[in-house]
Design a protein around this nucleic acid. Structure first.
Length: 413
DNA sequence: AATCCACAGGAAGCCCGGGAAC
DNA sequence: GTTCCCGGGCTTCCTGTGGATT
């Protein structure tokens, strides 16, 4: 029999019982320390089971505070109870980070309601938005029941696309004849309603729930719960859970982060052929997660954004911090000349800098230097263990030249 | 108190690619 | 094929602004 490279890996002892349990997409049976929130949410949504319209709600809280998990959990139970007692409840969850325009949200909603006997999907582009909207209304009415429309990361949608969609969605019940709908917004940003039209704000925020961040003890409970489900019982050394929880608690109590840490730590231990996950594995995992998050982001950046980022790194490699927008623009233009690329306007670069800030690759703080003018103070925030030069040059060989160039022109910087 | 710097960032509009409908 | 629509990337033009300097 011939050797296969997977033979060794497949027969290797695994520390996982069910790896899925350690992913944040996993729906656990029990959500520790979120009883009040579950109760608040279900207290409102129970109206759907009575055939009434639940209030619209907004759920606030930092990332990884369990907002999405709680909502999914409650919606899941709601749908099942509905089936039991013969009431149609349709929860639809939309992630507005991926689906981030009015048209796309509406067509997504419409397409999730597609039934077998119905004709083709709503196309991803091509129709006028109001037609998509009326098609959605038609489909909802033909199915009937109560719709719970959950808009996850709603703040992102509002900042990008405005509040037209929310105006339309919170007004849905006026259009529906046979169905009912309520909207639940999930936001990381407590103040996102500032961007809303007052009418939308009052209709959407009929009830708010605030999710406080988990503290270290809470995170430990969550990790223990998931570990018991997902990892072999004697595979975790004492202190590992505590360390993962403590590190994640520093990151504003992000349960997602805690779970990733534990999962990757276990993977690291497994790869090293150890039967016990210890604290050193957590440290390795921490570094690896940072690098895994940033590397693909840089690699998939559009060319112009890469040039801007390179320019910032270039300036920083000369020991400068708190760089101004104008300085970046100057170096960026030089880089474009070397790369024989058309350079963009300063306005656009300002936008790109804001975008890089949003992606977490740099921080750009608006400051005023008095007569020195108003500008952004820019610093890169790429972890030290990542060689951004090699990440960039791998996907864009021409950048090597820019980096080489800097050494020949040090005096100009 | 007025001035002024170096931008920030909003608004409008252009162009392009992708698609639907007629 | 033509005309319509959407969305993204971009430019042009513009108004706004915090605080050091005059």
């Amino acid at each position: 029999m011939s050797q296969n490279i997977f033979d060794g890996i497949l027969t290797q002892k695994t520390l996982f019982v069910n790896k899925e349990a350690l992913r944040h997409t996993h729906q656990p049976v029990y959500l520790p320390h979120r009883d009040t929130e579950v109760e608040d949410l279900s207290f409102n949504l129970v109206e759907a089971l009575k055939g009434h319209i639940p209030s619209n709600m907004i759920l606030y809280g930092v990332t990884g505070a369990g907002k999405t998990a709680v909502t999914r959990y409650v919606c899941d139970q709601l749908e099942r109870k509905g089936e039991q007692i013969g009431r149609i409840v349709n929860p639809v969850l939309v992630n507005c980070r991926q689906i981030d325009t009015q048209y796309r949200v509406l067509s997504h909603l419409g397409n999730t309601l597609l039934e077998e006997h119905e004709q083709a999907d709503i196309p991803f582009t091509g129709w006028p938005t109001d037609r998509v909207f009326s098609e959605l209304v038609r489909r909802m009415d033909s199915r009937g029941g109560v719709y719970v429309i959950v808009l996850d990361e709603i703040d992102h949608l509002v900042k990008k696309a405005g509040d037209d969609l929310l105006y339309n969605l919170t007004n849905l019940n006026a259009q529906l004849k046979n169905a009912r709908a309520c909207v639940i917004g999930i936001s990381n940003d407590l103040k996102f309603t500032d961007f809303l039209d007052p009418r939308v704000r009052s209709r959407l925020g009929q009830q708010d729930i605030i999710f406080n961040p988990y503290n270290s003890e809470h995170l430990q409970d969550i990790l223990r719960e998931r570990a018991s489900e997902g990892i072999a019982s004697d595979a975790i050394a004492p202190g590992v859970i505590e360390l993962c929880a403590a590190l994640a608690a520093q990151e504003h109590g992000d349960a997602r982060c805690a779970l990733d840490l534990l999962r990757v730590s276990t993977e690291v231990a497994e790869r090293e052929n150890m039967s016990l996950v210890d604290q050193s594995h957590v440290r390795i995992a921490q570094a690896q997660i940072e690098s895994d998050q940033v590397t693909p982001v840089i690699r998939t950046l559009p060319t112009q954004q890469k040039i801007v980022l390179s320019s910032i790194l270039l300036i920083e490699s000369h020991g400068l911090r708190n760089i101004q927008t104008g300085e970046v623009y100057d170096i960026y233009k030089q880089a474009c000349v070397i790369l024989q690329t058309q350079f963009l306007t300063a306005r656009r670069i300002s936008g790109i800098i804001s975008n890089l800030d949003m992606l977490g690759l740099i921080t750009a703080k608006v400051i005023s230097r008095g007569r020195g003018g108003r500008t952004k103070e820019i610093n890169s925030c790429i972890p030290n263990n990542i060689d951004s030069k090699s990440v960039i040059s791998k996907s864009e060989p021409a950048f090597v030249e820019v980096f080489e160039h800097k050494y020949r022109h040090q005096s100009r910087l």
